[in-house]
Amino acid sequence: MSHAAWHSLSHAVDHLNCLRTLLKDAHMMHMYAPYPIPRGVENACAAVWLLAPDDRAERILRRLRLAALDIRGGPSVSAHSPVHIARSRTQCSVLCRDLAAHFIAFLVAKSSRT
């Protein structure tokens, strides 16, 4: 969980710093280059969304949802990437399902203790 939040925050800071550099330090505005930079705001929002719930189970569920979203988008990314993707969509889906099964087992064990 903390790795995913840190990853999102790191991307956010990097993108927003780049935007500041373009606008403030370079004193110029490129026509198309800045458009992907607001992804920094998207990444910051993802980190806040992941960490917002007080309930640990809800935070884990949100992390699994984010992983599932990444898996669904994987084929379109790999189709345009010159880099070989090590895991197939099916392998990633199986991994995500396994993680979800462990999470469900955790919830069942937790509820039986209370």
Results as ranks from 00 to 15, higher is better:
22 L>M: 13
31 M>P: 01
29 M>N: 08
44 A>K: 02
13 V>C: 04
99 L>K: 05
47 A>V: 03
84 H>C: 13
65 R>P: 00
50 L>A: 00
47 A>E: 03
43 N>D: 13
80 H>T: 14
34 P>C: 03
111 S>D: 10
108 V>Y: 03
33 A>N: 08
43 N>I: 01
43 N>V: 00
28 M>V: 07
88 S>H: 05
96 C>R: 12
100 A>Q: 10
43 N>L: 09
94 V>N: 05
107 L>R: 11
16 L>Q: 03
69 L>C: 08
15 H>I: 01
77 V>W: 07
84 H>V: 15
82 P>I: 03
84 H>T: 15
46 A>F: 02
2 S>R: 14
7 H>G: 02
89 R>I: 12
60 I>E: 08
16 L>A: 02
75 P>S: 08
30 H>A: 14
78 S>P: 00
64 L>H: 02
20 R>T: 06
17 N>E: 11
61 L>M: 04
114 T>A: 09
4 A>V: 03
60 I>R: 07
40 G>V: 00
77 V>I: 14
64 L>W: 01
72 R>D: 15
61 L>V: 00
72 R>K: 15
75 P>L: 04
106 F>N: 06
100 A>G: 06
67 A>K: 10
33 A>D: 12
59 R>A: 01
18 C>R: 02
40 G>M: 00
110 K>Y: 06
108 V>P: 01
5 A>I: 09
32 Y>K: 14
3 H>M: 11
88 S>N: 08
66 L>I: 05
86 A>L: 15
41 V>G: 03
109 A>P: 00
18 C>N: 03
54 D>Q: 11
60 I>L: 07
26 A>K: 14
19 L>V: 00
75 P>R: 05
64 L>S: 02
39 R>G: 11
56 R>W: 07
27 H>I: 03
110 K>D: 12
13 V>W: 05
64 L>F: 02
107 L>C: 14
54 D>N: 12
72 R>C: 11
55 D>W: 01
89 R>E: 15
98 D>W: 08
42 E>H: 09
24 K>L: 09
2 S>L: 14
110 K>A: 13
61 L>D: 10
55 D>L: 05
5 A>R: 08
95 L>S: 13
99 L>D: 07
76 S>P: 02
5 A>P: 01
104 I>Y: 08
71 I>T: 15
43 N>M: 11
26 A>M: 12
61 L>N: 09
83 V>Q: 08
21 T>M: 04
31 M>Q: 12
10 S>Q: 10
11 H>Y: 10
97 R>K: 14
72 R>M: 14
3 H>D: 13
37 I>C: 00
97 R>A: 15
15 H>F: 10
67 A>R: 07
24 K>Q: 08
91 Q>Y: 04
83 V>W: 07
11 H>L: 13
109 A>D: 11
10 S>M: 09
67 A>S: 09
3 H>T: 12
64 L>A: 02
34 P>T: 02
112 S>L: 09
36 P>G: 04
17 N>A: 13
3 H>K: 13
6 W>Y: 12
42 E>S: 10
91 Q>R: 10
57 A>W: 05
80 H>P: 00
32 Y>E: 14
93 S>V: 05
8 S>H: 11
7 H>V: 04
10 S>H: 09
9 L>N: 09
9 L>G: 04
66 L>K: 05
38 P>I: 01
18 C>V: 01
96 C>N: 12
59 R>Y: 02
